[in-house]
């Protein structure tokens, strides 16, 4: 009977303005040139897809290629193109705001005129799971297909559920995609200026360790304990792995970090912290996936200690935490 083993990250894909590699996520700089999915994926198949879906497909392609599951130059996949069995690959996507543009613009058009004026091609985009299912369709991934729309922790929750699906034997590989689009509908509804919103996607390929070893995949990070609780103190007291002093890097937005000053005798205050939303734009449902990709980047830049990833809010919903460890530990 094998002991419970953690899942591995074996691929990262980014569709972010001005960011080419995961290690670049740690630089406090960003570009304002928007990602052009058609330039990276070709135009075919993108025409009726919303911005969030296009960004998600772009990041998903790169994560699959980075993990060696898809040929480096492939823009889509069928059963013959994939290096693994597509029925054993799950998709777990996360987005809170992805299809608000379609929903609001369609309902407004109907109210002003009638259903005659709306395009039938918008139908898939009215369903919030369009991102997860479009990724599955383009890359022939027939495993469980989940779309988390779970508020500020949604991205971290998606990474957790990917590992949970693997642990439950429902799949061997899981493609996690976090995405949010910047558009006028989201800007108006959130009250956040469009330029301060993330317009991008991040994808991770998560795998069963035995499967990754068998196919010679290169491990980038190991997923550790995940918790979701009322606040950060409650989350971390339930973590049986790293102690506060062990963390080498902490990913948290300013609002959560401010609320976390008190717990753990302030030990977290000495851990270098990155607030990625402040750099790359308010990331909502994409945040947790973005943070995990940055943790992978931190490891690839020489980081050897565990990374603590946190998202959420003390008031309102809840807080989620995840520990990632460098791949060396996975190969031990």
């Amino acid at each position: 009977m094998p002991a419970r083993t953690a899942a591995l990250v074996t691929g990262v894909g980014l569709a972010l303005p001005g960011v080419a590699a995961a290690a670049d996520l740690l630089d406090a700089r960003r570009s304002t040139d928007p990602v052009d999915p058609a330039a990276r994926l070709g135009r075919r198949g993108l025409r009726y897809q919303d911005r969030a879906t296009q960004l998600a497909l772009t990041a998903a392609r790169d994560a699959l290629a980075d993990a060696g599951i898809l040929p480096a130059d492939a823009q889509r996949a069928d059963d013959d193109t994939l290096a693994v069995d597509g029925t054993r690959v799950a998709v777990v996507a996360s987005s809170n705001l992805g299809n608000l543009d379609t929903v609001c613009e369609t309902s407004a058009a109907i109210t002003e005129a009638s259903t005659d004026v709306v395009s039938p091609m918008a139908l898939p985009n009215a369903s919030s799971n369009v991102v997860a299912s479009a990724v599955a369709q383009r890359f022939s991934l027939r495993g469980p297909n989940l779309m988390l729309c779970n508020g500020p922790t949604s991205g971290l929750d998606a990474v957790h559920w990917a590992a949970a699906l693997i642990r439950a034997g429902r799949c061997r590989h899981a493609l996690v995609v976090g995405v949010e689009p910047a558009n006028d509908v989201v800007a108006r509804l959130t009250g956040i200026p469009r330029g301060d919103l993330l317009d991008g996607a991040v994808a991770l390929l998560v795998e069963d360790p035995a499967e990754a070893a068998a196919r010679g995949a290169r491990p980038l990070a190991e997923l550790g304990d995940y918790t979701r609780d009322a606040d950060l103190t409650a989350c971390l007291s339930g973590t049986d792995g790293a102690q506060p002093g062990d963390w080498g890097v902490w990913f948290a937005e300013d609002s959560l970090a401010a609320a976390a000053d008190v717990p753990l005798d302030g030990a977290l205050r000495n851990v270098p912290r990155h607030a990625l939303g402040a750099v790359h734009g308010q990331a909502s449902g994409a945040l947790g996936v973005l943070q995990c990709a940055a943790a992978v980047g931190w490891f690839s830049s020489g980081g050897t200690a565990p990374a603590l990833v946190t998202a959420g809010e003390h008031e309102g919903d809840a807080v989620a935490t995840l520990t990632l460890r460098p791949a060396e530990a996975a190969r031990r």
Binding site: N129, D157, A318
Partner: peptide, 13 residues
């Protein structure tokens, strides 16, 4: 409740 998940999975959610 703090371990809550909203899954938006169309008509089989």
């Amino acid at each position: 409740a703090t371990r809550t998940y909203t899954l938006s999975n169309a008509c089989s959610a």
